[in-house]
Design a protein around this nucleic acid. Structure first.
Lengths: 193, 193
DNA sequence: GCATAAGTGGAATCTCAGATTCCGGTTAGC
DNA sequence: GCTAACCGGAATCTGAGATTCCACTTATGC
């Protein structure tokens, strides 16, 4: 591969990641091309089709998330603050949609990406351990689970157009509100599953 | 207007309300027509265009919401449980998207509907009083407002396709989680506005 | 420096979904 | 039994976006 081509490939994946974060997995190829500063044709020379490009974005994302979770875990003494930190990290501007994009990847895009699936499972496993630890430490209520956390992360880090403007502007505010609701003792009648 | 035509008009608005609740304000005319058991042509004989029909749905919705809020208010001794009840009511299956649909109505659809705008303002005003009352009664934390509640209602009662399946299946679970986070004393460091 | 394979931009093409129009065939209501 | 209102839904019109194509550039090996 020629040096300039390799350089462009990098720009493309990066641009795709950004645009997908902003506009969701349905982001148009042209928007990605423009962001990368290349023509659509170039996208198609590197990726057979839209799905392949989106899948590449998925790989990029899952690793970013996993790294952040690890960092939060290492950086905090107790599990609860690790969770708090991680959630805050995801809510930071520019990071939004990261998690949703992951959740939204169409099945047919993921189906054969065993590496991606494995990475995501590892990440969830990791996250789950943290939640259980927090519950064991008595800082998090027991009637909620990682899946609740993940879903809420997905909901609030949605592509901005799909959220009420004020929520999109500060998802962290709402995510923290929900974490407050998950603290040990916060349960009202214990929402049943 | 002929009797059968009047009957159809009723079926159309009702069907539109249902379909909009399920698929959002962008629901296709054909889906509405099918639900109402009429042809698309019939929709256009009653409403000049899509927007007019959607606006009619908006009117229908805002009144339903207002009534429910009043009912919750009358039915509860304290403001907090009135809020709790109202939120639970909105979260009930079949009601979902009601609130979002309202929030999503495109500006150009609403612009001239002063009656609608007034009704909505009245509803918000009502809701706001309830929130302030709960705060005065010391049951709700002071650093959140009606708007937070409304936004969250919108987010969780979104059209099912836009939410992670488990959330769409039981938005109430998550709304209650949020309410728990809004109870007096739940605040962690007090999310700043 | 030059030949040339690799790379490029972006207009043109293809698809598809959904709004809107139209009209031959039906009915309610007198 | 007449006929103005109605109806259903096929046909048409549009816009958005994926994908293809090709004339034009530019690294790179010699």
């Amino acid at each position: 591969m020629r040096a300039d081509a390799r350089r462009n490939l990098g720009k493309i994946v990066e641009a795709a990641a950004e645009v997908v974060a902003e506009r969701g997995v349905g982001a148009p190829m042209e928007a990605i091309a423009k962001r990368a500063g290349v023509g659509v044709g170039t996208l198609y020379r590197r990726f057979p089709d839209r799905d392949a490009l989106i899948a590449a974005v998925g790989d990029h994302y899952i690793h970013t998330m996993a790294d952040a979770l690890d960092a939060a875990d290492r950086g905090s003494a107790d599990a609860w603050s690790a969770i708090w930190d991680f959630v805050s990290w995801v809510a930071e501007p520019g990071r939004a949609a990261l998690s949703t994009a992951l959740a939204d990847l169409p099945d047919e895009v993921i189906a054969h990406r065993t590496e991606f699936i494995r990475a995501r499972a590892r990440w969830e496993e990791r996250f789950d351990q943290l939640v259980r630890r927090a519950q064991a430490e008595g800082t998090m209520r027991g009637d909620v689970g990682v899946q609740d956390l993940i879903h809420l992360l997905n909901v609030f880090t949605c592509h901005p157009e799909d959220l009420p403007a004020p929520v999109a502007a500060d998802p962290g505010r709402y995510l923290r509100l929900m974490l407050d609701g998950m603290k040990a003792g916060a349960a009202t009648p214990a929402p049943s599953r």
